[in-house]
Design a binder for these strands. Structure first.
Lengths: 244, 244
DNA sequence: TTATTTTTATGCCTGCACAGATTGGTGTCA
DNA sequence: TGACACCAATCTGTGCAGGCATAAAAATAA
């Protein structure tokens, strides 16, 4: 996958920092990394640049490359999200993402009902019909893929690119949920109807109904997986960084 | 500010791409950029790496550095947000951010009432008291700074780092609103009371009231500035990128 | 159409000079 | 003696210049 060399280095260092194998406050030296990873300076430097962009490190002269703590990480960076999901902070990351989607998706549904282009409304209807079909049939694999497409499409149809951009990590949540066996044998009939109702409402420009039914989906989805992060610590980021 | 050379190049190229001066689909050549900007290859390469991370460009062998369209940009990247706010997409960016904060802040207030540490609850009370004071006095400058701190603190107190991370762009919205003269002579008494009520509710762990009052703030804030983006086009990102 | 060669821009490597921050020493003054 | 200001050594990232390797598009041949 990661074909280029520097992408490998980003992956290597990033995953180790996020997992805690390289603790916060550590000082890395570019020259060391060259030797340890057997790559040239240019590769190291480009990788460090990317990691600095993610907030994982800062590099200063005469001191080296300082590893930053989790408060500094960019929680919207796809790399960071992936690494966190693969670490023991998985619960915390899933909770944050879920709280975010619970907040956002009802609004996205409401907006979609107002502004979505016709093609997207039609596609939404098709997808929800197929979801009902495969859901009742108990084909969880196909249902999962349709579910992911459904939510991605609602987010995109809102015409808000910040919403649309959440489809990848939200897809990751949904995949994680079924992989961890948190999905029932076959989807609840209620859930199927709610999805159908969201699609109908968006199709009919009924924004209130779209929001309401999406809220129902969110409530149930939350109940189904909130057990995952029970007892996980929360991350309180002090907003004292204003004091430049 | 941007002390390092490569940061300058990032700034230069990034702002030009976002503003449309370098149109999507353009092909930049590293060798050209070296000459035009009078910097060395390593600087160009590191800058391109950062821009690629933002989704502004992709560089492929034998073809060059391709400038991507707005659908590919990372809408949560601080650079991208800043550049968009400085371009003629300002309206679109403000709308997206506002829709996002309308979705998120009520949930943040609700969570804060449940999980915020004691120090943050107290600070929130202090800030809201000062907001009332300077607000009634008509000191808009101080009120603005307090308002920014208030919302940043609620987001942080939610214990959700994805929420907390939105404080910077949300602060930018609030600043922009007063700069553009969209604020009344002095804050509405209602707004002051709502802020006070949010702080009280969080302090008393009354999550329902915290959400309700924050929703009121959001409703009013939306009405005050939604005129800014009237007629601005929406960005529909087709989620067909799943077809790897 | 299909296979092969050529072209060409990025990816990667290395040696060198510079800038700026930390550290420790030096000297001055109380 | 001890506190403090100043200066120099040193260390590490930053930037520069050039070279070779390689992959993918384009042109050519089969």
């Amino acid at each position: 996958m990661a074909t280029s060399l520097h992408a490998h280095v980003v992956e290597h260092l990033g995953s180790r920092i996020v997992s805690g194998q390289v603790p916060r406050g550590s000082i890395l030296l570019a020259a060391d990394l060259e030797q340890r990873l057997q790559v040239s300076r240019s590769v190291i430097r480009e990788a460090i640049r990317v990691l600095a962009q993610c907030g994982l490190v800062t590099s200063t002269k005469r001191v080296g490359i300082r590893v930053m703590g989790a408060e500094s990480w960019n929680p919207y960076d796809d790399h960071v999200i992936r690494w966190r999901l693969a670490s023991d902070q998985k619960g915390t990351q899933l909770r944050s993402l879920t709280e975010l989607r619970i907040s956002v998706e009802p609004m996205a549904a409401e907006l979609a009902a107002e502004v979505a282009p016709e093609t997207m409304r039609k596609e939404l209807m098709m997808i929800s019909a197929q979801m009902s079909h495969y859901g009742r049939q108990g084909d969880l694999r196909r249902f999962l893929e349709l579910d992911i497409r459904f939510h991605a499409l609602v987010l995109a149809a809102s015409g808000n690119e910040m919403f649309a951009n959440l489809s990848t990590p939200i897809g990751a949540i949904l995949r994680g949920r079924t992989e961890l066996g948190l999905m029932p044998e076959r989807p609840h009939e209620e859930a199927l109807l709610w999805h159908q109702s969201v699609a109908d409402a968006i199709s009919n420009s009924d924004s209130a109904s779209a929001r309401k039914n999406m809220e129902s989906i969110m409530r149930r989805t939350h109940n189904e997986i909130c057990s995952l992060w029970e007892g996980q610590p929360r991350l309180f980021v002090d907003p004292a960084k204003d004091t430049k």
